[in-house]
Design a protein around this nucleic acid. Structure first.
Length: 303
RNA sequence: GGGGAGAUACCAAAGCGGCCAACUGGGGCAGACUGUAAAUCUGCUGUCGAAUGACUUCGUAGGUUCGAAUCCUGCUCUCCCCA
């Protein structure tokens, strides 16, 4: 009998945490978080980390385990999850991975190509380059070192161009040569459950959740991180808007409004990401018992 | 009661005789995405259509003009000032 990884995804604010807990409790197993911002120790309120009581009820992995100044990536996540899964499967046939970071989830589900890490010097060089040079010159550089990728990328997206240039310089090989597009088979079965709600319902929940975060002291959490605002981890919804307020660029009310809007947009982008994944079985979060029934039914058919 | 300013698409706001279905911003919608991805980037947003395009719009009713969101007149409403 193969082991089963239940992958629970859905847009921010849809109600993943509760369902994940219920499912984990029902199958008496543990939860792997696939939420790239809940990884960070210093970001708690703004990323809606489950409270201590809940965390005590069920063992969670990858929650607040690194610091905002540490480098992490979807590839490392893939490696780390694949490392920890066998331990969970010793005790239980089911494991559950819940979160909303599409790329991280995909890395675990079918792998991401092996590409060497970029050295900090090269990274810094290109970050500066992108600040000082127009996109055109980055394009020209890319065309020279990797014409294949040049023809594939969104040439308006300087972040993508820079990544390719960094890899080319680090490895001495074209970035495109690393992209195999191969999906690696895993030795466990993946069962994808998606949670969704009518747009209006979702947006209402998002709005009130932001208000709740503010009540819980999001502003103070962000203020304490002010010195680190340049870090990528803090370029996150809920943080950057409050930084703007702290710098006096916008009013407090405006920052809250922007957090709501940006969270809504984020949720929309998440839905777009998953819309092409035909393996996801969609449910409304209220359908808790149906979800568990669905999983049980599928599990019985898996040899 | 007198004088002035204004009414433009979901909102804000430009346009002030033809190049206007109407700049721009917001909001919304749709999409791309193999590396700090809650990031980054793109398209659409009067109606119908895949599209050429067709049709209905700029408070309202008329008028001037080959032609009006743009000019004139009445009306309605909003704001400001004086009484």
């Amino acid at each position: 009998m193969k082991n089963i990884l239940i992958v629970l995804s859905g847009p921010t604010g849809v109600g993943k945490t509760d369902i994940a807990l219920d499912i984990a409790e029902h199958f008496n197993t543990e939860i792997i978080s696939s939420d790239s911002r809940q990884f960070y120790r210093e970001m708690r309120i703004g990323t809606a980390v489950p409270d201590d009581q809940l965390l005590k009820r069920i063992k969670h992995h990858f929650i607040q385990f690194i610091s905002v100044d540490e480098y992490y990536s979807s590839s490392r996540f893939e490696r780390d999850v694949l490392n920890i899964l066998p331990e969970i499967f010793i005790k239980n046939r089911f494991a559950i991975m819940a979160g909303g970071s599409g790329m991280y989830i995909d890395a675990v589900c079918h792998s991401i190509d092996d590409i060497p890490d970029v050295t900090p010097e090269i990274r810094e060089k290109y970050i500066n380059l992108s600040k000082n040079e127009p996109v055109e010159s980055l394009r020209v550089a890319l065309k020279l070192v990797d014409p294949v990728y040049y023809s594939l990328v969104d040439l308006k997206n300087s972040k993508r161009i820079i990544r390719a240039l960094e890899i080319c310089e680090t490895t001495g090989r074209p970035y495109s040569s690393f992209l195999t597009n191969q999906k690696r088979e895993r030795d466990f079965v993946i069962l994808k459950i998606g949670l969704t709600r009518p747009r209006e319902e979702l947006y209402e929940r998002i709005n009130s959740r932001v208000d709740k975060m503010i009540e819980e002291g999001l502003t103070e959490e962000v203020r304490a991180l002010y010195g680190m605002k340049h870090l990528n981890a803090l370029n996150s919804v809920g943080y950057r808007e409050i930084f703007e307020y702290l710098e006096g660029n916008i009013t407090y009310e405006k920052s809250i409004e922007l957090i709501k809007r940006n969270t809504r947009r984020f949720a929309k982008r998440q839905m777009t990401w998953w819309s092409r994944d035909k393996d996801i079985n969609w449910f409304h979060p209220d359908q808790k018992s149906e979800i568990i029934k669905f999983i049980t039914g599928k599990a019985m058919k898996i040899e």
